[in-house]
Write a protein that binds this DNA or RNA. Sequence first.
DNA 1: ACAAGAAATGAATAATGATTCACTGCTTAT
DNA 2: ATAAGCAGTGAATCATTATTCATTTCTTGT
Lengths: 209, 209
Amino acid sequence: MAYRETEKMRQRKAQARQRIIDCTYECVANGGFRSARITRIAGLAGVATGTIYRHFESREDLFAEIFRTATQREVDKVAEALDTNGDAAVRLEAALRQFAERALRGPMMAWALIAEPVDPKLEEERLVYRRAYAQLFEKAIRNGINEGCIPDQDARQSSTSLVGAIAESLVGPLSPTLAGQITIADIDKNKLVDSIIRFCMQGLTGTRR
Amino acid sequence: MAYRETEKMRQRKAQARQRIIDCTYECVANGGFRSARITRIAGLAGVATGTIYRHFESREDLFAEIFRTATQREVDKVAEALDTNGDAAVRLEAALRQFAERALRGPMMAWALIAEPVDPKLEEERLVYRRAYAQLFEKAIRNGINEGCIPDQDARQSSTSLVGAIAESLVGPLSPTLAGQITIADIDKNKLVDSIIRFCMQGLTGTRR
DNA sequence: ACAAGAAATGAATAATGATTCACTGCTTAT
DNA sequence: ATAAGCAGTGAATCATTATTCATTTCTTGT
C-alpha cells in the first residue's frame, strides 16, 4: 500500500470540486440550467469532463446541488429580513422587498431558480424551496396575527399566495429577453417592487395603502 | 393533371388532423406534454408517425396548437364569468372561482398548462396566456375602480398578482403525485378555492372578509 | 527509484426519440 | 382502365449530449 490519501490531496480534490461548483454557478447565472453543458463547465473549471463525474453522480445531481445552495442563500436572506425588529407586518414587508430586490439584481439566476423549465428532479427541489419560503412567511403571518397587526386568516393560504404573487410579478421582468420584449433595464425596479409589496400587504392586512 | 384535391379528400384530411389533435390532447391530459410521444399519439390516432408530420411542422408545433386551444378554452371561460351581472368585485370573484374549479376538475391538463416544465416555444405560449388572464382581470379591476367597488390601485400589478396567487396555490395540489405526497383527493377542494379567493379579494378590495 | 494505488483524462459510447424519405397505395380525371 | 399526382407509411436516420471506461498521469510510502 504505497498510496494513501493525504490531507494535501483531500484539499486539492475539494478545490477542484469547488471550482466545478463555481463554474456551474457561473454558467447557470449566465444562461440558466438548460444551457449549461457539462463540457463547457469542465472547460471553465479546467478539468476533463470525466472529472466532473468523480465529484458528482450526474449532471442532475450537480445541478441539484447548485440549485439548493443558491436557493438556500436566498431563503436565508429572507429569513434574516424576517428576523429584524418591528412588528410582523413591517418585517414581512422587509422580507418581500429583500426577495424581490435580490431577484432583480441577479435576474438570470433568479429566473433559473424561480421559473426556468427544468427536469423533474430540479422541479422537485423547486417545490421544496417554494414551500420553504411559504413556511417562513406563514410563521411571520401567525406572529402578526398574535401581535394583532395582521387580521386573523388562513396563514398557510396567504403565505402561498404571497409566494405566487411575487414570483408571477417577477417572471415577466426576469424572463430572458425574447425578440422585441421589454428588458429589465426599461422598467422602474423600485416602482415594480413597491407595487408588488402594496398588493401583498393589502392582501395580508386587509388595509388599503 | 389527373388528381385534384376534392372536398371529400379535404374533409378526410381534416378528420385525420382532428383525430391527431384529439389524441394529443388525451395524451397530454393523461401525463403532460413531456411524456406525450409522437409514436404513441400516432398509434392512438391510427396513423403512421410520418403522417403526423404531414399535418404539423414538428412536435413542438403540434403541442403549441394543443396548448393554445386548451388554454384559450380556459381563458374564454374566465372571460365568460367576467361578463355576467353584478358589480366588478362579484364578477371577479366568479371568474377566479371558475379558473380554480376548472383546474381542479382537470388537474393533469391544468398542471400541464400552468406549471409543467416545457420547451421554450411552449413556455412562450404560456407567458402569452398568463398575460391574457392578467389582462382580463386588469380590465375588470379598472371597471371596479370606476364603479367604486374596488379602491384605486395599479390594476396591472394587481392582476398579475392575482394570476400568480391562484397559480401558486394550485401548483401544489395539481402537481403529479410523487411518492408519499398529498393527493388531490385528500384536500377539500371547496375550502381551497374559498381560501384562495378570500386572499385575492382582500388584496383587491383592501377589505377583510 | 519503484511499485501500488488513486485521480484525471477525453475519445468513444449510449440512449433517446424526433424526424425523414424512398416507397406503396389511393384518388381523380380522362 | 390508365396515368398523374398526392397521401400515407414506418423503418432507418439523425442529432444531441450525458456518461463511461480503458488508458495515462500523478502521488505516496518504502
